[in-house]
Amino acid sequence: MDEIENKPFSTPALDSPDLREEIESLRHLLGSILILLVVVSGTLTIFLLREMKNTSAQLEAFRPGATNMIAVYQKQQAPAMDDFINKMKQYGQTHKDFDPILFKWGLKTTSPTLPGAPAASVPPPSNAVPKK
């Protein structure tokens, strides 16, 4: 009875060959898993590097033209377009026969005052001029 109390079952001897074998086995397993993880992680890293390089090249090719285009649009085209639209709206206020065009392009939303105006049924197109 004393012998059993002094040597619990859950504490095997540290120098037991079975335990050493198990530790070696676990060490091999850990090494294998680490190698696998390094391979997977390296593959992901290389993939992300290539994607980043591709996107970077696309951006460098696209950026100068796009920046120039946006600058020209903001400085010259957009004000001219807005001016044109405003002039058309002003013209439409005094010329009711112009309403169909205004309705078509979504520049006028209220119903026409002239009875039987054909444009009232024309829906605005999906690519109507975006309003600022």
């Binding site: 377009m81 690519n127 001029v129 975006p130």
Partner: peptide, 22 residues
């Protein structure tokens, strides 16, 4: 950044096309 630029360019092109049609 690339998507943002592409979106702006597309918007400009669409608006220009719409104004031309108008």
């Amino acid at each position: 950044e690339l998507r943002g630029l592409q979106f702006q360019v597309t918007q400009i092109n669409q608006r220009s096309a719409a104004i031309n049609s108008l």
